[in-house]
Structure formats: structure tokens, C-alpha cells
Computed example of a mutant assay.
Amino acid sequence: MRMLLSALVLALVTGCTAAPKPGYVVNVAPQKTHCVGVGPMQCLVVDDQLFYEPIIGFEFEPGFEYKLRIQRIEAFTDGQIPADASRYQYKLLEVLSKTPAASARG
């Protein structure tokens, strides 16, 4: 009985850890790059891939590498997505780090 009670207490304690934060973490490269969406434009490079959409609330400064927590939001809940629009919007939740790029450091 005592072992069962101990196991139950342990399960409750370990199950009460902080809930994970919403959104997901991405890495942003220190420079934008040329890309073509509806027309020629400059794209962020997020996790080594072109990122065509803006991140709402994020002010990019060239020369810094960023680690961000962002949230993906359904932009058109009525299902009527324009041909030249993305289904999603991205919102900044938190800047986890902002560090000078290796080329800017030295």
C-alpha cells in the first residue's frame, strides 16, 4: 500500500511540471535573400529555408541571428483563400535570442 501511494505521489509531482509554451521555435538567418513570390522580393531565411511571409511583431535587423518563438495562425477561416495569399499568418510570441552573426563579430 505504501509503495502504491509513493508511486501515485511521484506520478502527480512529475505530471505537474510547467506546460510547454505555445508556438514553435525557429532560427532566422542574419540576412534576407532575394526570392520571388507574387513578384521579386526579399525573404527571411528561417531554418535554412525561404520564408515568404512576414512575422507579425518581428522587426528584423540585418547582421543578427535570431531564435524566435512564433505562432502560426489560420488567416482565412472561411476557406476563401485568395490565389496570391498564404493560408497562414505568423505572429511573434517571443524573441529567445538575438546575437551578432559570426561575420559581424570578427
Rank of each mutant, 00 (worst) to 15 (best):
residue 26 V to R: 10
residue 25 V to Y: 03
residue 59 E to H: 08
residue 82 P to I: 05
residue 17 T to M: 06
residue 66 Y to V: 03
residue 94 E to P: 01
residue 34 H to I: 14
residue 95 V to E: 04
residue 30 P to V: 13
residue 68 L to R: 12
residue 87 R to Y: 11
residue 43 C to G: 02
residue 59 E to Q: 09
residue 17 T to L: 06
residue 24 Y to C: 02
residue 47 D to T: 07
residue 34 H to R: 15
residue 66 Y to P: 00
residue 58 F to D: 04
residue 48 D to F: 10
residue 93 L to R: 00
residue 97 S to D: 00
residue 31 Q to P: 11
residue 39 G to D: 14
residue 53 E to S: 10
residue 56 I to W: 03
residue 71 Q to W: 04
residue 51 F to V: 08
residue 77 T to I: 02
residue 14 T to A: 08
residue 97 S to Q: 02
residue 100 P to C: 07
residue 88 Y to G: 10
residue 45 V to K: 04
residue 45 V to L: 08
residue 49 Q to I: 15
residue 29 A to E: 06
residue 86 S to K: 03
residue 63 G to I: 01
residue 89 Q to P: 07
residue 74 E to V: 13
residue 15 G to K: 05
residue 103 S to I: 15
residue 70 I to A: 01
residue 91 K to A: 09
residue 53 E to Y: 09
residue 50 L to V: 11
residue 76 F to Q: 01
residue 104 A to Q: 15
residue 25 V to E: 00
residue 13 V to S: 10
residue 33 T to F: 14
residue 47 D to C: 07
residue 1 M to H: 14
residue 95 V to R: 01
residue 92 L to I: 06
residue 46 V to R: 03
residue 38 V to N: 10
residue 6 S to I: 12
residue 81 I to G: 07
residue 44 L to Y: 14
residue 59 E to M: 09
residue 24 Y to W: 13
residue 65 E to N: 06
residue 82 P to C: 01
residue 58 F to P: 06
residue 101 A to H: 11
residue 69 R to E: 03
residue 11 A to W: 10
residue 42 Q to S: 11
residue 5 L to N: 13
residue 102 A to E: 15
residue 64 F to N: 02
residue 76 F to R: 00
residue 58 F to M: 01
residue 1 M to A: 15
residue 48 D to G: 08
residue 105 R to T: 12
residue 74 E to P: 08
residue 2 R to V: 14
residue 60 F to C: 04
residue 84 D to N: 12
residue 10 L to S: 06
residue 21 K to R: 11
residue 50 L to P: 10
residue 57 G to K: 07
residue 31 Q to N: 14
residue 9 V to I: 07
residue 82 P to V: 03
residue 50 L to Y: 13
residue 89 Q to E: 11
residue 70 I to V: 03
residue 5 L to P: 12
residue 21 K to A: 05
residue 49 Q to N: 13
residue 100 P to V: 08
residue 28 V to C: 02
residue 79 G to Y: 09
residue 51 F to Q: 07
residue 89 Q to A: 11
residue 57 G to D: 03
residue 100 P to E: 10
residue 97 S to L: 06
residue 10 L to T: 10
residue 49 Q to L: 15
residue 53 E to I: 05
residue 32 K to N: 11
residue 15 G to H: 07
residue 40 P to L: 15
residue 60 F to Q: 00
residue 45 V to I: 08
residue 79 G to F: 08
residue 49 Q to D: 13
residue 47 D to S: 06
residue 58 F to E: 04
residue 17 T to P: 05
residue 48 D to I: 11
residue 48 D to V: 09
residue 59 E to S: 09
residue 4 L to I: 13
residue 4 L to F: 12
residue 56 I to Q: 00
residue 105 R to E: 09
residue 71 Q to F: 02
residue 106 G to S: 13
residue 83 A to V: 14
residue 101 A to W: 12
residue 89 Q to K: 09
residue 38 V to F: 14
residue 87 R to K: 12
residue 102 A to Y: 14
residue 91 K to I: 12
residue 55 I to D: 00
residue 15 G to M: 05
residue 26 V to I: 09
residue 66 Y to A: 04
residue 64 F to P: 01
residue 12 L to M: 08
residue 12 L to K: 02
residue 55 I to M: 01
residue 62 P to D: 05
residue 67 K to S: 05
residue 21 K to I: 01
residue 78 D to P: 03
residue 81 I to M: 00
residue 13 V to L: 06
residue 97 S to P: 05
